[in-house]
Amino acid sequence: MVMMNNQSNGQINLAAGTLITGKWNKNQYKIKSLLGNGANGTVYLALSKNGEIALKLSKDSTNITNEVNVLKKITKVQGSFLGPSFIDVDDYINPYTKESYYFYVMEYVNGVSLPQFIERNGMEWSSIFIIQLLSLLSKLHDKGYIFGDLKTDNLLVTKEPYKIQWIDFGGVTQMGRAVKEFTEFFDRGYWGLGSRKAEVSYDLFSVSMIFIHLHSKKQFLKNGQGIKQIEQVIYQSPSLKPYKEFLLKGLEGKYTSADQMKQDLLMHEQKITKRNHQMKKVSKTSNAKTPNVTRSGQAATRTQVKVMQKKKRSHWFETSTIVLLLGLAYALYFYYQL
């Protein structure tokens, strides 16, 4: 029997420059730097013959193999980018200690963490990325899987154009099964608001919690009051309050699909933008919180939201025809990007 009595999920330390040669496929990877260390393994940035890659290494073959199984399945279908593409899987035997390690190699996603990005560029980005995340989820759900361990730590923002990307597929679970991996704050089971069965609503609960985490900038422990406690947090945060209905519906499992939740957020966004717009007209003062991003980038994303709202037969009569045309062009651009 494979003994794992001591689950020291300890980090595997490899010095920069270490050359890893696969036991089976004989591919070579040169370790560059540590990217992260999680419960299921250590991730390194490494150099393959085709450039930079991410290499995940563990002493336990179970998690590595299960993640490979998932990666292969969800990235199999061409055309839609659902995650870093899978490159290689192999064993590494340390030449000195003769210890066996199991690893897989995937595309390296170079980005900043979502909270970090929002810290730098402004809170108005949060809805945009949540919308993008819901689009990703919709595609994953269509394949019969849920993400499971959806949390802010597992989300990166990549550049040109700014786009959300998830990493760490340890929690991806076939629908109808028990969720493989989760993080308490983002887990509806922890809050007493549902089972850990892999269903669409499980992921959508996490989406609401991610939104709350981004705005409130904190993860809090449960006090036993279930949804009431989360509701209070929403009420106490001026930036969360306008999204109250949207968030609660996500928490209560009332959305039947990621697309439905996305449409609802777009509607909320439209109402809020309108309200802000009117307030601005009245006060005639410019927004104090100008985000620290390139103007074009900001404009592009704003327009994207506007035009998507238009699709929902909103009343955007104020918008001039030029902006509309430009917007439509952007919409098409984003549509094909997503």
Partner: peptide, 23 residues
């Protein structure tokens, strides 16, 4: 022989069965 001594592609199949049973 053990699961670990199988080549990765075979191992993947075995673990899929292990997961099915666990579920």
């Amino acid at each position: 022989n053990s699961i670990e001594s199988l080549p990765p592609s075979k191992r993947e199949e075995v673990y899929e069965v292990v997961e099915d049973i666990g579920e």
